[in-house]
Design a protein around this nucleic acid. Structure first.
Length: 255
DNA sequence: ATGGTGGTCCAACCA
């Protein structure tokens, strides 16, 4: 099973890119973040024509997540227990016996800001949610835009970036707590090129300078991590005309 | 040292 995650920064704008990438890469599952459209506006019919089942938890203008899959997704969950939130950032579903949890973790804006507090609270709720999912599902993959660079290898210039947003110790500690539940960052199970990133700021020619971060992650439960045969980043869509600021991250499992 | 870009939607917010 080949799974992938991509923050598309508006599915309205990026639909042609997503269709192109589905055609060339043939993932079994592709999860999207920042679709920035309502569930009603989500183009499920277009994905059906491309051979994919699709479900979304949409929101106008901001956020919004979706799961596309070759096999039908079942048992969707869109909210974390005990965390009431109008922001649509979570979509979990079961595909071929694999539990897929698609996340759009809050950005946090700036360390110490209100949005930062919201981010840390959201991550705390996520820990409870994922502990429960791990108890219920042997084969669990948690993937999406985590808005956290796990360590300095995942930052183009760690000294310059310092402890700013996406890298601050409390954010990294929260990610570490999630992984301590029994989730592995499968990208790091394999040899990778230096300076492999999944997001580059539109500003200041970030992509041209490879001034990026690896903040889009694929975490897997022990059974699934043990069956992972490859994980990599596909930079190509970031070179296309009118690209998202993120590019797809992929993992292949022998299940 | 400052400001850069891009999406949504048309002023201002978010990233």
């Amino acid at each position: 099973m080949k799974v992938a995650t991509w923050n598309v920064n508006s599915l309205n704008v990026r639909l042609p890119h997503v269709l192109e990438w589905l055609g060339s890469s043939s993932p079994d599952v592709l999860v999207l973040q920042e679709i920035k459209q309502t569930t009603e506006a989500f183009p499920a019919g277009t994905f059906a024509e491309a051979g994919y089942h699709a479900m979304a938890s949409g929101q106008k203008t901001y956020n919004g997540v979706a799961i596309l899959s070759r096999s039908p997704p079942t048992d969707p969950v869109t909210d974390m227990p005990g965390f009431d939130d109008p922001q649509r950032r979570v979509l979990a579903a079961t595909v071929n016996g694999v539990r897929v949890v698609n996340l759009y973790v809050p950005n946090g804006s700036e360390v110490g800001s209100e949005k930062y507090t919201y981010k840390l609270g959201w991550l705390k709720a996520l820990k409870g949610f994922l502990a429960n999912e791990l108890g219920a599902f042997d084969k669990l993959v948690v993937l999406g835009d985590f808005n956290i660079a796990p360590d300095d290898r995942d930052v183009y210039d760690p000294e310059k970036w310092g402890d700013a947003i996406l890298c601050s110790p409390p954010e990294r500690a929260a990610l570490r707590e999630l992984m301590d539940l029994g989730l592995t960052d499968v990208f790091r199970q394999f040899d990778q090129p230096e300076k492999a990133f999944s997001w580059w700021d539109y500003r200041a020619a970030g992509f041209r300078r490879n001034a990026g971060l690896r903040i889009d992650l694929i975490l897997a439960s022990p059974v699934l991590a043990g069956s992972c045969s490859a994980s990599y980043i596909d930079r190509e869509p970031r070179t296309w005309d009118r690209p998202s600021d993120h590019t797809p991250v992929i993992a292949e499992f022998s299940v």
